Computed example of a mutant assay.
Amino acid sequence: MKSVTTDALKKKGMKHMTLQKKDALSGYMFIAPALLSLLVFMVYPVIASFAISGFDWGILTPPRFIGLENYKTLFKDPVFLESLKNTFVWVIMYVPASILVSLIVALAMDMPLRGIGFFRTMFYLPVMTPMVVCALLFVWIYNTDFGALNYILSFFKIAPVRWLTDKNISLISIALMSVWKHSGYNMLILLSALQGIPESLYEAAALDGITPWRKLINIKLPLIMPSMYFVVLTSVIDAFQVFTEVYIMTKGGPGYSTYTVSFYLFNNAFEFGKMGYACAMSVVMFVIILTVTLIQDKIMNKNVQYDT
């Protein structure tokens, strides 16, 4: 009798293990396409960039190993240094403006007003519009001679502004367009966080006679910090890789005033045929983005509390 019971338990255990293996296999099959895509389009290019950066390779010519020469040349290249400076200026200028606009719009869109869904859709619409379309639209808006913006300014007796041809404001002009384009995405994330705050907290605060300003500072902002943390982190990473706006709107000009590392990298890889040199730039940017992200994560994660 004991032997029969033991055999039954063993069979039950083996059946349970078989089911676990089947479940695990099903799970691996479901994630296989995404995992394969990640390996092919992200992991492999990163590893290949590190390897190619040690070669003098013009794509159509045989690669020649030169060690760290590309990196030595890189930090003596005035155009790269200018591009690096412009990239940091872009991040410092674009990220705070984008997040501030997103937060203000999210707070406004959280109000219980009639027809608020229409305005939410309108603010999110630029996110769904391709960047090329947005960039071309703003090229027309910013046009010095017949652009809509200068036409409006003419009513106030303001002389035409060279939005994209003045090296002192061209990068700012592109940043304004990019803020308009991307703020809707961050707005949606922050709005979701705001709408997830329990109504009971607002009711308790109202009983205490809290002012709208104290409600924002003491209730809303602390409770949306996890979402704010995500928004800031992804915005910084994306800002370091700015390319399309510059390529469409100014081609890096006037001069090198709107050159970014991504734009200069593209030029070297696909216009000048310096693939090894371009990969060295990508490695430098990878290290910079990784370092900034880790520092940012360490600083911000201290002030973020997650619900458990």
Rank of each mutant, 00 (worst) to 15 (best):
I237D: 03
V246W: 02
I59Q: 07
V179H: 09
V236C: 06
G196R: 11
K298F: 10
K21V: 13
M111N: 09
P96K: 06
I47E: 01
I289D: 04
A48H: 10
T18N: 13
I152K: 07
T258P: 08
I47K: 06
M93G: 07
T293D: 06
P126H: 11
Y264K: 04
R64W: 01
F118D: 02
M249A: 11
V43P: 08
L290D: 02
I174T: 09
L223H: 06
D166E: 08
Y306M: 05
G273K: 11
G273N: 11
K11W: 15
S170C: 15
K181V: 06
P96M: 06
L216A: 10
M109C: 12
S178T: 15
M177Q: 04
V101Y: 00
P126M: 11
Y142H: 07
S83G: 10
F146G: 09
K157C: 05
G252F: 01
A193R: 05
I172Y: 15
V43E: 03
T18C: 12
F272Y: 15
F75E: 01
F65L: 12
L74V: 01
I197D: 04
S170K: 06
I174R: 04
T6R: 14
A106T: 06
S183F: 13
V89P: 00
R64G: 03
L38A: 15
I99W: 05
F30M: 12
S102L: 10
K21N: 12
M187W: 09
T293Y: 12
T6N: 09
F138D: 08
S26N: 13
A175D: 11
A135G: 10
T5M: 11
A97Y: 02
M228V: 02
Y151S: 14
L265K: 01
T308Q: 12
F50V: 11
F41L: 09
M17W: 14
K274M: 11
F266V: 01
K167W: 13
K21D: 08
P254C: 04
V91P: 07
A280Y: 02
D166G: 06
F75H: 02
D166H: 08
N168K: 14
Y124E: 03
A205R: 05
S235I: 02
M42Y: 14
A8I: 15
F270S: 03
N218Q: 12
K302W: 04
Y142P: 07
Q195I: 06
P96T: 05
I248F: 07
P130V: 10
G147P: 06
L188M: 15
V105N: 00
